[in-house]
Design a protein around this nucleic acid. Sequence first.
DNA 1: CTGAAAGCGCTTACAG
DNA 2: CTGAAAGCGCTTACAG
Lengths: 339, 339
Amino acid sequence: MKKVYLKDIAKDLNVSKTAVSLVLNGKGNENKISQETQQKIIEYAKKHNYIPNQLARGLSRGKSETIGLIIPNISDTFYSKVAGVIERKAKENGYTVLFSSSYENPEKEGELIQSMLNRQVDGLIIASTQQNQKEIDFLKKEKFPFVLFDRHYPSKNTDYVVVDNYDGTRKITEHLLNLGRKKIGLITLKPGLEPIAQRLLGYKDALATFNIDLDKDYIFEIEREEYIHEIEKAIQSLVLGKNPIDAIVFSTHYLASQGLRLLKKLNISVPEKVAIVSFDELSAFDIVDPPITSVIQPINKIGCSVIDILLNKIEGISEQGTKGIVLETKLEIRQSCGQ
Amino acid sequence: MKKVYLKDIAKDLNVSKTAVSLVLNGKGNENKISQETQQKIIEYAKKHNYIPNQLARGLSRGKSETIGLIIPNISDTFYSKVAGVIERKAKENGYTVLFSSSYENPEKEGELIQSMLNRQVDGLIIASTQQNQKEIDFLKKEKFPFVLFDRHYPSKNTDYVVVDNYDGTRKITEHLLNLGRKKIGLITLKPGLEPIAQRLLGYKDALATFNIDLDKDYIFEIEREEYIHEIEKAIQSLVLGKNPIDAIVFSTHYLASQGLRLLKKLNISVPEKVAIVSFDELSAFDIVDPPITSVIQPINKIGCSVIDILLNKIEGISEQGTKGIVLETKLEIRQSCGQ
DNA sequence: CTGAAAGCGCTTACAG
DNA sequence: CTGAAAGCGCTTACAG
């Protein structure tokens, strides 16, 4: 069975390519093509398993019905879950999604943006490394539809969807303070990303609210690629140092789980001796020993908001300016913070 | 800044489109285009931010440099991790990956295959619902490059990469038996998927090896979409029934974590009263209370093997027949099985 | 209602 | 070394 093309159908059925194209795109009626002809064409297409070439179609129409999704890492729970929501919503609207991971590498991210543009995606969704000013400016200048999520460029006027990282960390730190913990460490990542900056701020402001002086030795800013190694030093210093802490705030789920692993190894009782809380979570955090108190991100809302904004942009419904959405997080109190 | 095309470069530089195309595709030297001209073209392209249209390129060359990945659910850890590996490897070889989730819906899977074909992907990777004989046959007939993973069609002669589900479950069940557990329940999914069938077999054969009669009441085959609800009944029946078990084998990570949640709720001590083990794991299973003994799948190897086979197929290096790879699993003994 | 034709933006023999 | 031209497989005014 050889491949069949539009022209084959047209020839075999003694109609024009135009007619075939129109009918197969559901424009038969509005172009007043006889029911009989339409029937004939549709049946033939089905019978011979006609597969329209989207490349040709896209080229001709200047639209690919594809959305590009660039995230730090598809294997990370948070991103894979958001990706799931985005994909589902995109599909519902007739779009396929092309995804790629930047692995936090700005150059790679730049290349990915280029590559997506090459492929004529109709729009772009990016959880950025925040170090590609140039590309973002380019997209803006070209008025190319895109929306940032999770990490945006606060200084730039773009569409974005983020959660309130400041508020989340602040709430959770204050929760520890309310429980009487006074010496609270923070294990977070090296500066560079807006959410991380916000989480640091939230922690600091919570302490300030309770009139507790900030102890620089209580804050560890870890290199992401080296976190397994560096977090060990951080924990040891916080727990076994001269002035041991009684609680730790972890700014990501992987820092929290690794931190807990190490605390267990050191036989530090959690939460009795050291209470811990995490920004973001893993799906088993509720059955961990002890269950980890976490700041929960509204995954579904994030994905839906992103797609909504993007599709409106693509379809030109809302060209008036840009839209920034900041979503609330939710505190999930579990045992690790000492309730 | 308006968009620039091949023809613009050619015109502005007073060379032919051919020359521009050749140079930009790195074929300048082999076509003996003067260094000077090449330089000129490359600079111009960079300066004006020339973005070649991959749709046009693909259409013209009959190759899209894209791979389609169809999985049950991108949000599931296992698939998102394999997807990560596949994406990385694909990228290294110049391919972008188009991904879509079937959500275990055969019709949807069929549509996705069609859609990917429409988009002229060069090859397809599928973790199938195993209910699309027709599509698979079609791909085979067309000699379209594709490889199945995780779930394949045992009766069909295709390329595939799976793990030894039978062996994994058997090993882990025997481990329980060796520890003296005799009344071992199985909580698994309704039949339909090859891995699930194999896991059931492994469990049964392990019991047989130890001369233990199979008790039908100990096996619960759960409807996936209803698992939260159904597993509750299963656990209650196994644990609180007239003939309570002393161990449970869970055939997936989400069944295991949900099962443990329920056992905790019922105040059943694990592993003292009931030992549990899981096929596959979540990343926090080692810090869960108690840490869950699991059969680990070689994620990285799965992804690499899949890509290897597919790329060979696409590039026509190995047309001779099909290749089936069965990878070994690893037992990770933790506390939940009573060691 | 229908058909011939131009065009989408590339690549690639082919002739010089 | 280079250019004109055909072709990839569609869509879509436009003329009838």
